[in-house]
Write a protein that binds this DNA or RNA. Structure first.
Lengths: 357, 357
DNA sequence: CAAGCATTCTGAATCGATTCAGAAGTATCA
DNA sequence: TGATACTTCTGAATCGATTCAGAATGCTTG
């Protein structure tokens, strides 16, 4: 019927004209109620409504004020993939908790493989970025830094000059390995997340390990190594399988891993998702956990205690990481603080003494 | 050392001056490589880098072009809460898949309880909104509509003039109830999600049912009712417990529900999370599922088949809903299409024939 | 050789608000 | 009464880009 919104969208100016006041006054009506008489304000707001004014254009406002009211979040992995990762979700929950409190929106920026297409980061209208687990060599990392906005890094201990929050991955991993060793396991296998961004899958050699661009994978491996070597076991004989952080994929990889001779009596999984995959493949092969095979995970996502047997794992404060990252980003403090949160080994049902041969 | 970024941030103008060309040319260097000679372009880009130019300011660009490259997402529940809901996460995954494909960012907008604070929606710099499961009376809904941007509604069949995607909730719920009835259950209890946004918890009466502002809750209840009445059971005698969509809370509610006399032999849970809570409380009370108690969920989130006993549930295409919603939003088609996706009952281990008295 | 066409670059308008300094008018106080 | 202060409103600059129409140049072609 009406063709209100037909031509041009109406702006501040238009209602100013209609009411017969200045642009400034209309702006004040929306943003500073104390700057004008209540009656005039009501009148302005009313005619604005009548004219179908959608409110002050956010882009214009942002340009002028310089504030966007949003914080950007960049994941090291593809988005649909990140939403599979319950650890990432828990982190998101933490971030969102702060967002809600301070009334900020959360802009999740896809960082596509195609290096050319990093437009999304350049375009992101945010007041700052949280980067989560970006590989050292990622194009996205460069782009984010270029933006010259506040940045907080999560799980990326290697970045200098950037405030960060994370855990002591090496130490945490060490706990997991020490636990298995104290149960007398000698045949231990490791399921690792990506070491490099090349989609490689399979056994990892020293070469590859050295050149890892994924900090936390590298650090956790070092932690495993620390404990294993301390137990006088030759680390070079310990099979390390690289694997996407995906349950089904982990199941396949664990399958081949469990067909080795001698068969491992224990698996160090670098995430609960990997551990879960290993558990599934053990069940598929009719191996009893923990009688035949011990499994230790990492993260302690909810599923770790929901499945049976309950997963022994290294607990890290996922939600809190999100909260801290967001708070750090929002605090104007120039301090390049670097928060390291605590972890602890949670022993449940998936680990037990090594089977006697 | 350097005090480059000391005073004012540099802009297009500055590099134009430095290189000795016009603003337009510098802009073209960034956005339209074909509009200037490669040499000049390189020179511009180079000095831009030298001067530490962060690239064209996204807000200014947006203001001019009118495009933000982001789509907004508004949840009916609080954000940290939404990130607990694996059904919502699956939906998000679907949306993010499209975002990644079309190189759009995803702005998640917190819609705080405090109605005053709906600034976040007014401020959101997006090209359109996806609204997910907003209650009919929510302030957020009004605000989103006011923005006069493209909108797609998910799970909100009641909105007219707004393209939507969803399922036939009534029909889907009916399948669940019919299944239990065909197993000869007579004592059925219902665990419902929120009917109104007042944080009420407990038994639901007709009054409350009628005035529900949460469409899908209402529709699913109707579906249950359809089947139950068809089986000649008095629906008013069927206990309906309203409950937050939270596992722990569901467990408590199920606890009181299972202490009724006569004890229900079957529970219709309106989500898998509720079903999971019910399952946990059954285990706590040493009730065998499905021998003593049958449970049917809704959604078919991954956990439904990961736990034991595997959950009988109504499967709905969660990820696909996200994909479709995003695609619908991005398609310029003016058609007020309304997509209804299919559902199916997945019978697993949590439901069986009613125990003989 | 003049006309026509590409290529490369520029000037100025524009997107839609916010904000500062101050004008006009009214109330308060010594 | 005159000075001071407060309230209410306005004018104009500004945020930092994009984009259109066209100027200047060189090149082709009949």
């Amino acid at each position: 019927m009406e063709h209100d919104k037909a031509r041009k969208s109406i702006k501040l100016q238009d209602i100013a004209q209609a009411v017969g006041v200045s642009r400034t006054t209309v702006s004040n009506a929306f943003n500073r109620p104390d700057q004008l008489s209540p009656e005039l304000r009501d009148k302005i707001l009313e005619t604005a409504k009548e004219m179908g004014y959608p409110g002050p254009n956010p882009m214009a406002r942002m340009l002028r004020t310089g504030k966007t009211g949003a914080i950007g979040l960049v994941f090291g992995e593809s988005l649909p993939y990140a939403f599979n990762d319950l650890a990432a979700i828990a982190f998101l929950k933490g971030v969102s908790r702060v967002c809600e409190r301070v009334k900020a929106s959360l802009l999740i920026v896809p960082t596509l493989e195609s290096n050319a297409a990093q437009k999304t980061i350049e375009q992101a209208t945010v007041d700052g970025f949280i980067i989560y687990n970006l590989p050292d060599d990622s194009e996205a990392l460069v782009r984010v830094l270029e933006r010259q906005l506040p940045v907080v890094a999560v799980d990326q201990p290697s970045l200098k000059d950037v405030p960060s929050v994370g855990i002591d991955d090496r130490q945490a991993a060490r706990k997991a390995a020490t636990h298995l060793l104290s149960l007398h396991h000698k045949q231990i296998a490791i399921m690792a997340m990506e070491l490099q961004s090349d989609l490689y899958v399979g056994l990892v050699d020293t070469q590859r390990l050295e050149h890892s661009t994924h900090q936390i994978t590298k650090l956790r491996l070092q932690g495993y190594r620390d404990a294993i070597e301390e137990a006088r076991i030759d680390f070079s004989q310990v099979p390390i399988y690289e694997c996407r952080n995906d349950e089904n994929h982990a199941r396949e990889v664990a399958m081949t891993l469990l067909q080795r001779h001698p068969r491992p009596t224990a698996i160090l999984a670098m995430s609960d998702i990997l551990a879960f995959g290993a558990l599934r493949s053990a069940q598929q092969m009719s191996l009893k956990v923990p009688e035949d095979l011990s499994i230790v995970g990492f993260d302690d996502i909810p599923i770790a205690w929901q499945i049976r047997p309950r997963l022994t794992t290294v607990q890290q404060p996922l939600v809190e990481k999100g909260v801290l990252a967001a708070e750090l980003l929002l605090s104007k403090s120039v301090t390049k603080t670097s928060k390291v949160l605590g972890t602890r080994l949670v022993v449940r049902e998936s680990s037990g003494t090594a089977p006697t041969v």
